[in-house]
């Protein structure tokens, strides 16, 4: 399990963790029932505070990605990867719809929009 924390990034650390754990679940690297390291161990390994890892795990649990058993730890929830992918796809569609609306408002052509998208894709 790979998690990389950056202090330079403007994102709060707990968010960096939740995002990366989600990505690991979607990519299938973490499967249903897999145990995650304890909050305290993760804090030690990442050199961050326990309260931060706790917050990340709680957030993931609230969103249904993890479940925890007291005294045993946290595990990847049954939400399957397909479902997560669809969820992600739906979000992409939503954002793109907004982009299309925006483009239409300022009279952009489809080709222009696609070109912008292509540029953005390359940049990221």
């Amino acid at each position: 399990m790979h998690i990389v924390i950056s202090n330079q990034s403007g994102k709060p650390i707990y968010e960096q963790i939740t995002e990366q754990v989600k990505a690991l679940i979607i990519s299938g690297e973490l499967k249903e029932g897999d145990a995650l390291p304890s909050m305290r161990l993760l804090a030690k390994e990442l050199r961050i505070s326990v309260i931060t890892t706790k917050r990340a795990y709680e957030e993931l649990e609230r969103e249904g990605f993890l479940y925890s058993i007291t005294g045993k730890g946290s595990f990847v929830a049954g939400k399957n990867a397909e479902f997560l992918k669809e969820e992600q796809l739906r979000q992409v569609e939503e954002h793109l719809t907004q982009a299309v609306h925006g483009a239409q408002l300022c009279g952009m052509e489809l080709e222009e929009l696609l070109e912008t998208l292509r540029l953005l894709w390359k940049d990221s």
Binding site: S38, R40, L41, A43, K44, R47, V50
Partner: peptide, 12 residues
């Protein structure tokens, strides 16, 4: 020393 402290708080 930080390592030792992290080890210490592994117990909640």
């Amino acid at each position: 020393i930080l390592d030792i402290l992290y080890d210490f708080i592994q117990d909640e």
